[in-house]
Structure formats: structure tokens, C-alpha cells
Amino acid sequence: MSIEIQNVSKTFNKFNALNNINLHIPTGELVALLGPSGCGKTTLLRIIAGLEFADKGSIFFYGEDTTARSVRDRQVGFVFQHYALFRHMTVFENVAFGLRMKPRAQRPSDKQIQSKVDDLLNLVQMQGLADRFPRQLSGGQRQRIALARALAVEPKVLLLDEPFGALDTKVRKELRRWLRHLHDTVHITSVFVTHDQEEAMEVSDRVVVMNKGQVEQVGTPDELYEHAVNPFVYQFLGNVNVFKGHLDQDSHFHTNDDNRVASASAYVRPHDLEISRIADGESIAATVLSVLSLGATVRVELLDVQDITLEAELSKELSRTLDLKKGDQVFVKPKQMRVFTASGAVVAAA
């Protein structure tokens, strides 16, 4: 079931929530809508679901125009950020709700409902909790029930709004893997909203990066990470060091003032920043501000000659060899960087 979004715009009280969005979500994929809060990702998800109506544009499910269709008829599964479980119903009743609400002619028998709900509770590994009330469940368990409830009506697409937003870090990591695994079993076209780039990268087949009501870039996690098309995407997908500088005639980036043609910035990931005790042609002098051990890696904060704070990530071994101390004079050099002109266009991958 593919989803096609064409020219969708939405305004709330003169605030442009979505600005002419065009997007194709291929059948069977798990796609993340990623962006900072207020970028319009939740609005877009709710428009796909039919919980919100676009001012302009159309939504197609597998080539069929569903723009005018009500939320009841769209056959979507929606998992709410705060689960929206019916608090006065048991887990079983929550999952069975969608089946019980069908018109009498289409409604399954009690026996069928029973076995269907049992299957779903098995699928989300919640067997044995059918008689509990939502308030007796942990956050992670509620999330699973919300998912089972959404799947019960056999939706054509599954939509999840910040599905792990309200959970603590450990449960969140567990559930992420589990969702990925679940998607590999059921293969339903799924879209989920998140503001956490790590979550988007880990779970999804494809990531849609959004900002200020617009789509910035669409791609697989690797594509985005390696080939960000603009500074926003690059910065949003991970920590970054920014070097201000210039381009020469051959479009090479320099931090010094020779051969300046146009101003530009180089973006470097912390793990792509090499630290050395000895200067070399292109390296930049810097002072160590702090050394922080993060388990497997070591984070080094430095201050370069332009008085800009830099961040580098080294392996434990390398850090042991270098034996860095606060106040040490060192030289840094990017192993890999991405250069953008002042207007935000990509220059070259060095």
C-alpha cells in the first residue's frame, strides 16, 4: 500500500504548518518523519490519517484519492503519542474495540474476536494481561497495547505519532528494535513521527527530514547521514563541528584567507575529526578543554584558534595513546567533511 502526498498545505491561524508537501511512501516500507518540534510532522501524519484536513492538496492510498474520505473509512491504524487507550476498558476490550464497532453485517463473532485478540496479544508479547486495565500497565506495555489495538482492524497503513516519546531511554531502545522486528513480520506500510534522529536512523527504511513545514530531504538513513543536501539536515542528523572559511577557484575549501572566491562552511562530524600531537599542512591548532569518557569512546572538547569550541570523538585506544590532558596544545584535521556555500548548497564531498 503506497501513500502519495501531493501539494499538501495547511495553515493554523495564519501559521504555515505545512507548505506544499510532496511525498511518496512506497508499499511495505517503514518511514520516519523526522524534524524538530513545530516542523509540521505530526500535522502531516494527522492529515494522512484523516484526523486533520489539509487546506490544499491530495492524499492517495495506492493510487486512490482518499482526500475527502473520513477517518473512519480510511482504514488506517493510528498509534497516539500518549496511547489514548480507553481507560475504562480492559486490555482485551481495548484491542477488540475496532472489531466490535463494525456494522453488524461485517462484525466478527465473539469467538472470532476472542481468537483475533489473542493472536494480537501474542504478537505484541502481552499474552496473559488481557484483563488488566491501562492504568495497571507500564508505559511500554501501554504502547504495545495501543499498537495491537491499531492492528486489530487490519489497517492498510499504520501511523505512529512519536511512538516512544513518553518512555524512558531503556524501554525506548528495546521497543525500537521490537517495532523494527514487528514491521519485518507484518510488512504493513508504516509512517512514524519522531524528533529523535537516532530513533529514525535505527528503525526506518527511509527518513523524511522536515523543517518549518517543508521537506528538506528524503532518503535511507545512510544516504542522509553521508550525503546531507543542506546544513540543516547535516546538523539535525548528528553532532557537528562547523568551520567557517572560503572556496578557491577549484571549489576547494580553505580556512585561511588565500584565493578567496566565495565564503563557505565546512561541516565535520566529531568522529571525523582527527587529533594529532604534530602539525601537518592543513591541520588547525587547538587547545584541549576537557576529556570526557563515554564508555567505549572518549569525547574531547577543544578550542581552536578562531575561538570556536570543537568536539571530537576518539576510540578509547587512540585516546590512551594520545594521552590528552586539559590545556594540551594539539592539532586537528577533518578526515571527512561536507562543505556548504552561504546559501546552503552542497559544494563537494571532500
Binding site: A49, G50, L51, V71, R72, V76, G77, F78, F80, H82, A84, L85, F86, R87, F97, G98, M101, K102, R149, A150, A152, V153
Partner: peptide, 13 residues
């Protein structure tokens, strides 16, 4: 409105 929206998505009138 969360619970009402959830019910509507699940096909309730």
C-alpha cells in the same frame, strides 16, 4: 480529544 479520535480511527461512528 485523544480517546475519541482513537475510536474514530478504529471505525466507530
Amino acid at each position: 480529544n485523544d480517546e475519541e479520535e482513537a475510536a474514530l480511527v478504529l471505525g466507530a461512528t
